[in-house]
């Protein structure tokens, strides 16, 4: 009974997180997404029935993936204009050997990581200022609320005009996407810090500085990490779209070029690589989250 509840609980949460990421990726505002994506707690010692259920899930996942590829293959062989899976793999190898794929991956990853890291690095202090000081909140809030309603991509034309067509405008919109997702979450984390914990620190002799570093920061870490995951999804989505518009290299750029030459295989390669890279980065953050927030009680 209890275990069943745990399982549903977990998959429910997974779903809501995906929904959150999708909502942002789709360019909608992160308002509802953040409300849903509550911080999750870390790993639990596996139990037998849980493991078997997990295995079952993995098996089903594999079946689903294989079936999907099979349907793709069947469609490709039956008059659809898709390239077949082997053709896509072949294309990937060809692009890799030519050095193009690596170059695109590096270009895209470089942009997304720069924008994402800068965005998160700026979001955390701003989120803290907003949560901790009324002045900070009063000054930042209107701007953040305003820009949150605008998909970062919608700013791209303006940014391109102002900053030219180099790397800066692309990194900037990615920065903005990551920043906006992360700042609200951080702010909420700070506001939600349990008053009794702050009081407990005060009566143990902690002054404001120590309370901030030793209580507020660790207590809001789960929120920050959720914000970073949403921010990463948002950054990645923005990146590809930005590259479609203007770039000398990158996965989005490659797709755009391929489109001109009707090169469907290359488009497929790019899509798959984008998906895999996004998934890997998300899992890495999830791992960090599990490591850093394992202290949370499950309720």
């Amino acid at each position: 009974m209890e275990r069943v509840i745990e399982m549903t609980d977990e998959s429910e949460r997974d779903k809501s997180e995906q929904a959150a990421a999708r909502a942002v990726a789709a360019g909608s505002t992160a308002t509802t997404a953040l409300a849903v994506a509550a911080p999750r707690s870390g790993g639990k010692p596996p139990r037998r029935s849980r493991v078997s259920k997990r295995t079952k899930l993995i098996v089903l996942n594999c079946i689903s993936v294989v079936a999907g590829i099979a349907i793709w293959w069947i469609l490709a062989l039956n008059g659809f204009q898709f390239p077949t899976p082997p053709e896509v793999v072949e294309k990937a190898i060809q692009l890799w050997n030519a050095g193009i794929l690596q170059q695109d991956i590096l270009a895209s990853l470089g942009r997304v990581l720069t924008g994402f890291l800068l965005g998160s690095a700026a979001a955390v202090p701003v989120g803290f200022l907003m949560g901790w000081y009324t002045v900070g909140r009063g000054l930042f809030e209107p701007w953040i609320q305003f820009f949150r309603t605008i998909p970062p991509l919608a700013l791209l034309p303006l940014v391109l005009v102002l900053l030219g067509i180099g790397e800066v405008p692309k990194v900037f919109v990615i920065f903005l996407a990551a920043f906006l997702a992360c700042v609200i979450s951080t702010y909420q984390g700070v506001v939600n810090v349990d008053r009794t914990l702050i009081n407990a620190a005060r009566v143990l002799g902690a002054k404001d500085g120590a309370i901030f570093v030793r209580v507020v920061v660790p207590a809001s870490t789960p929120f920050i990490l959720v914000g970073m995951r949403v921010g990463l999804g948002s950054a990645w989505a923005t990146l590809v779209a930005a590259e479609l518009l203007a770039a000398p290299a990158g996965l989005g750029y490659r797709m755009q070029q391929a489109q001109l030459y009707y090169d469907l295989a290359t488009i497929f390669v790019s899509i798959v690589v984008i998906g895999i890279l996004g998934l890997v980065m998300d899992r890495l953050l999830l791992l960090a989250e599990t490591k850093l927030t394992g202290w949370q009680e499950r309720r």
Binding site: D194, T196, L197, N199, A200, A201, V203, R214, V215, P218, A219, T221, W295, Q296, E297
Partner: peptide, 11 residues
């Protein structure tokens, strides 16, 4: 001070 809700730092 000892609080009813323990108020231990969970991390």
């Amino acid at each position: 001070v000892i609080f009813q809700q323990y108020a231990l730092f969970p991390w």
